[in-house]
Design a protein around this nucleic acid. Sequence first.
DNA 1: TATGAATGAGATTTCATTCAT
DNA 2: AATGAATGAAATCTCATTCAT
Lengths: 239, 239, 239, 239
Amino acid sequence: MRLQPLANQAFSPFTYNLFHVKHSLPFLCYTFYGHILLMGVFVMSPKVGMEPLRRQQIILAAKDCMLQYGFGHFSIKDVAESATLSTGVIYHYFKNKQDLLVQVLKESFSETEETVREAVEKHTAFEEKFKAYLEAVADVPKQNPDFYLILLNYIAQSPYNEEVQPLITKFFDHLRTFLEEILEEGVEQDILHPETKPVLSHLVMSQAMGLAFQEQLLPLDNVEYLREEFVRLFQKYIE
Amino acid sequence: MRLQPLANQAFSPFTYNLFHVKHSLPFLCYTFYGHILLMGVFVMSPKVGMEPLRRQQIILAAKDCMLQYGFGHFSIKDVAESATLSTGVIYHYFKNKQDLLVQVLKESFSETEETVREAVEKHTAFEEKFKAYLEAVADVPKQNPDFYLILLNYIAQSPYNEEVQPLITKFFDHLRTFLEEILEEGVEQDILHPETKPVLSHLVMSQAMGLAFQEQLLPLDNVEYLREEFVRLFQKYIE
Amino acid sequence: MRLQPLANQAFSPFTYNLFHVKHSLPFLCYTFYGHILLMGVFVMSPKVGMEPLRRQQIILAAKDCMLQYGFGHFSIKDVAESATLSTGVIYHYFKNKQDLLVQVLKESFSETEETVREAVEKHTAFEEKFKAYLEAVADVPKQNPDFYLILLNYIAQSPYNEEVQPLITKFFDHLRTFLEEILEEGVEQDILHPETKPVLSHLVMSQAMGLAFQEQLLPLDNVEYLREEFVRLFQKYIE
Amino acid sequence: MRLQPLANQAFSPFTYNLFHVKHSLPFLCYTFYGHILLMGVFVMSPKVGMEPLRRQQIILAAKDCMLQYGFGHFSIKDVAESATLSTGVIYHYFKNKQDLLVQVLKESFSETEETVREAVEKHTAFEEKFKAYLEAVADVPKQNPDFYLILLNYIAQSPYNEEVQPLITKFFDHLRTFLEEILEEGVEQDILHPETKPVLSHLVMSQAMGLAFQEQLLPLDNVEYLREEFVRLFQKYIE
DNA sequence: TATGAATGAGATTTCATTCAT
DNA sequence: AATGAATGAAATCTCATTCAT
């Protein structure tokens, strides 16, 4: 008695559906005479706890599609294909396209924020923290190469998208507030003038963002050196 | 007695109704005594020769739509409506949507480039030129409020659009090369180290772009002050 | 005891209502004594697995439209209407208009080729095979009245259509090669001179095609007689 | 005093229309002081007897377009461009697109008919006339390479075009009737059986047409030989 | 949970024809 | 007789979303 894949031609044109139903399994066996017998169909019970996994699977596929096709040509069908799921199931896990898009952005944001925070928290001295911050934000395009391309797509959309706009604003605010907290230590230690804080934090954010976008657009040959100079530029500024 | 080109504004496409000689254009010249003489008439038909006028009209309408709906929801139908024309006529003046989009971008670029060049060329001393450049690029969002929003939309498209990508690259290259030419004067006057040139030009471009995008995204309350600090940041850097 | 594929016609997409086990397909086999046994059921959903059915349905509708409106005024919208489907669903089953058109042609070709081959294969003697071939190709317009009208439409397109051109060429080549294989028997039996083969096969193809097109164009009153004479013409030629 | 081309910049944006009006001419001269003076505009009177010439010009351009783009992508704008005329003027000489298309076909037909008639009329004896006819119709694709491609386009259209259909029928009828007149001589000289006449004439027409179409479709390597055999086939038939 | 078929609105593009002059 | 701008209908194609099962 041996299990065998079902020969295609043995099935009427509708039987192949069986194999498309992902959570069912035909159970076959050979008879004593070598004939194939279908013993039954196991319709597997839906897996428990699949929800977060599926969501993740879809978000990842959506990220891929965003990078490959851009916001303008991003389609649910492509996401489904890329996740090897049906289009319909996307709507089980996400309210609609917009919802999916927002989740993708949220993921990207929290990833990047985490990276920066971790880099800073290794240090205690103000100067070291500041340097670590500068290096971390300058390194985002290297650590997380797709982040700025995704961000770019969303920023372009943001003026026309009520949900995306505040998300982006919040992301930059978080990151900038975090920097201001670091700078506050400098102020307390009389290294920095209090007024420098808001301006400096804005300039750092802008510069980091500008550099990353330039890198996306033009093939820069001396990226590494530019990043180092970016750090130096602001170290010089606070002296 | 000198031949004089007719002032453009004297001949809106509908003015032909005003002439006694129907559907024609008077050809005039000044006499020795300053009197105007009608030398003859050019036969014209009002439905002919609309090309330059219409192209401009459509490009303007397209810019409006771009700002209003963004790249993602930019439609030819909207452009036509906004220009109070039929959709078909757009294709009389532009090969396709892509072509129109490219023309819009080209216009925006040349406008901005011109503004910066003009600002710099008022000065002769290196330090003044450099300052003028910094101020001019920092002021682009103020002088030309739509520029960065349009740019943003195109940048997001650029990785998926063969024609737009090189246009943007060229624009930034032009602007950066122009800055390097200014910096070269600083090098010649021993104010700057030669190696500073490429790095500095990149950092300035990034910072300007980053600031402008931030301004697009967040309602900054101290924009003016930030711009001043932007200038000071780089003045400090070259000291 | 042998497994038997279910006959297609037993499962129109709507028959699922008839089964007691809802939305499923019975899997049957013959017993040693010829009795039918229900071995199990395949779970299916009526909205799934429509592909082969719909493709056929659409191809048929497309054929109808082709005949009714011709290549020049063949529109997807008409096909959809004729198949009582939405326009969108056509693009679910076919990549684009061109793809659909090609599938229609392929079907028509294989049908006709099959008819001719079957007619010939009933015979064994060379003369009989040759006669059967001549009669079969002459009878195509009668057996398959739409074939030449469809062909005509495609041929007119072929110089401007990269995909259709080789399909048509291949079709005629197949049919002509098949005739050459028949003629080869005549050569082996010393009934034909070897050199006659290629020329004769071409002339037969041309004549058949020419006759069919004439029939399309003019209302011939003596079609039957013409076909007989067509056969006689070439029988005489090989004597 | 010298004639000079008008400097572009001397004209308001609408004056260039002057040069677009094909039948008007500015008349210029230099003054004693070197200034350009426009002396007047000659609006040339419409040329008399241009009608047939223009019609011919347009028909030729239409033929070119038909060959280049086929019936399916044949557009008035292309015809106008190919004839270096405006789209509007086409409608001065032809009622509409359909009318133009019909004229193109008529021209092609009369050309071909003429060729065949001339070839036959050089001879007097029946056999020679018959041979000349066969050779002439077989040679049409060589003498008039575009004829069958144009015909193909029209035939495919004919079932859906009330005006084209009878034109084609008439063309083939003419040519076939002409052959029957020749054959009648053979009947009178007791070379042919009277019943052969209609069948033979049809078969000849079909064969010629079929051969020509095959030649259009497939790259035949032995066209010349095929044509000779075509002649021989029917010479043999009447023996 | 999952499938993928189906819908229908909307976008781009083409083009015969008209029209004012 | 000639221009080419303008229209608007129609065609192709895309895609978010729904739906029966």
